[in-house]
Amino acid sequence: MPMASEFELLGRVTIGQYLPTGSLVHSLDPRAKLLVVLLLIIVVIVSNSLIGLSLLLLAVLAGLAVARIPLRFALAGLRPMLPFLILLALLQVFAIPQYSIGATVIWHRGILTITDRSLLAGILLIARFSIMALGLSLFSFSTTTTELTHGIEHLVRPLQTLRLPAHEFALVVNIAIRFLPILAEETERLMKAQASRGADFGRGRRNFVQRTRLLLPLLVPLFLVSLRRADQLIEAMEARCYLGGKGRTHLIRLQERLPDYVVVAGALGLATGAIYLSRVNADRLLWSWLSSHL
């Protein structure tokens, strides 16, 4: 029934595309995995060293192998971004004037110029995005939504002592995730109701803008429904004595174990290494060593 699937939004809501292989990576504490992912993102942005980024890429690939996640699964998330990525990389290579001032020209034809610096910037951009995408895939394939919320809640809890609204943040994340299936269901209901009265949600050949415009009539009712749902949820929370995060206890307690410490320590080491390689300009050193010895 291809017709029915047009409205089945619930099936498409996949935050966390969990792939239960039962590996070591899956059994890690979600806090450890969150920390490592956070660290990975920071280092990938900060480090300018191709050698450092290659090390990170190897580490992420090793993680995928240990987690027994097929590479084509992990790459699937990268595919929709690929056109944008290539466009951005081309812009870096050809269109940023700063990269051509005082740099060695490698290739030149008409108005197009490639310098060593611009080429490096393009390669770095693709490397950064690929590592991040693979790392996030590794995380989301090996962590359930529940583990994710537990992890966030436990990680931010210490911030409460700094008088930051840590509990509120965790609750907002939790309720947002809780509301996704509800809103998907409501949207499905609204779409069916409107379609039964002749609304067309853009089957056939329409471009992205046209299809988006067709969804506009859904927005206002969906907004109203969300507000009503939120009202009801607040009432239910108050009826169960919710008076803010003060003095709350917790049913779930995450228990960190030795592998969690090992993984976080390893990630810290790797991160320091990648940043150090970038600081000492390791790429240039390697390049000059190679060109003088070969």
Partner: peptide, 25 residues
């Protein structure tokens, strides 16, 4: 039914009330 459930997991939703009361673990 849907809009009075706070947590994403059954047992955690049951725990929401007593957690607010500060009942020990």
């Amino acid at each position: 039914p849907d809009s009075q459930i706070v947590a994403t997991v059954v047992e955690e939703d049951v725990a929401f009330g007593p957690e607010n009361l500060g009942i020990p673990e």
